[in-house]
């Protein structure tokens, strides 16, 4: 079986601005592929090219074995798509809107729309213009999933959804994969990708700066640490911390009064740090995931600056 999606040196220019600067990815059937990157990295442009909404300046894209342009409407019926900026309006009711999209999609099984609406919790009898952003997003998800397409292309699908619905969405993605459907998911939220994707590519400024399986990518290992202590001098603390090679950007408050405050970035295994901290009297401790943009820049800053062909493989 061929790839579900394959792009070879795909490029897209808007005038003199290069939005995508040579993108090569392959997505295998029955897997979840996460495309992550900061806003403006080119995720939406990439996904739109796969749907033939916009056309590449050069390079090749193949979706389910065909180029999007040659595949045309018949190919798009086999795909479910959630656009990055879903805007639904008008007096049309949710149910009628979905009926319209069902007519121009693949075959929708009886009851599929109501099942999805129940799961996500959206009232299909309300006028679309009166729905909140989150409820519109649910309609967007329903129209993408309802015909059980071979391929789902989801651009920031959880934006506007509350955490409970986000969790339901992640379940839907896992079920789709279990059905043998392929999912291409873009996000600027790392944890969302980590929980679902088999493979990940990190897009920054129109280029892939890292790709591999989720576990191997080091993105998830960067953490910001904040802690405060009592019963230890700042100098002594610094001396101990300097022995941890994974810790950087160490900043210790040296006012001389208690508590002693520490901020640092850890890139790697967190266990040694926890053990070290545990020897002291900890007043407060926070370990936070930095935002994706920061992680990408910290880890891949050099290759994100435009040198092509230096993709890190996890």
């Amino acid at each position: 079986m061929s790839h579900a999606i394959e792009t070879i040196d795909l490029k897209k220019n808007y005038g003199s601005h290069a939005a995508i600067r040579g993108l090569s990815i392959t997505v295998e059937p029955g897997t979840v592929f996460g495309l992550i990157g900061p806003n403006g990295a080119g995720k939406t442009t990439t996904l739109r090219m796969l749907l033939d909404v916009i056309r590449p300046s050069s390079g090749v894209a193949r979706v389910l074995g065909e180029t999007p342009q040659a595949g045309g409407p018949a190919l798009r019926r086999r795909i479910g798509f959630v656009p990055g900026e879903l805007r639904l309006e008008g007096r049309i009711r949710g149910r009628a809107l979905l009926r319209h999209y069902a007519e121009i999609s693949g075959q929708v099984a009886p009851g599929a729309v109501d099942d999805l609406a129940d799961r996500l919790g959206v009232d299909l009898n309300r006028e679309v213009r009166k729905l909140s952003k989150g409820n519109k997003q649910k309609l967007g998800l329903i129209q993408a999933f309802m015909h059980r397409p071979e391929l789902l292309v989801l651009d920031e699908p959880t934006s506007g959804l509350d955490p409970l619905v986000q969790r339901e969405f992640l379940t839907m993605v896992r079920e789709a994969r279990a059905n043998g459907q392929t999912i291409l998911l873009s996000s600027h939220v790392l944890s969302e990708i980590q929980q679902t994707a088999d493979q990940v590519a990190v897009l920054s400024d129109g280029l892939i700066v890292a790709e591999g399986d989720v576990a191997a990518l080091r993105l998830g290992r960067i953490r910001r640490v904040r802690a405060s202590f009592t019963g230890i001098a700042a100098a002594a603390l610094r001396q101990e911390l300097d022995h941890l090679p994974t810790l950087r950007d160490i900043d210790i408050d040296v006012t001389g009064t208690e508590p002693v405050r520490l901020t640092a970035t850890i890139d790697g295994d967190i266990d040694p740090l926890v053990k070290l901290l545990a020897r002291h009297s900890v007043l407060d401790l926070a370990v936070e995931e930095p935002d994706l943009e920061e992680s990408v820049l910290q880890l891949y800053g050099s290759s994100a600056n435009g040198r092509n062909g230096e993709v890190r493989h996890g």
Partner: peptide
């Protein structure tokens, strides 16, 4: 401009149609 066209054309509808 309202974003509807992108979603419609991402379905099984050709541009000419």
């Amino acid at each position: 401009e309202s974003g509807q066209l992108e979603l419609t054309l991402a379905h099984g509808v050709s541009r000419s149609q």
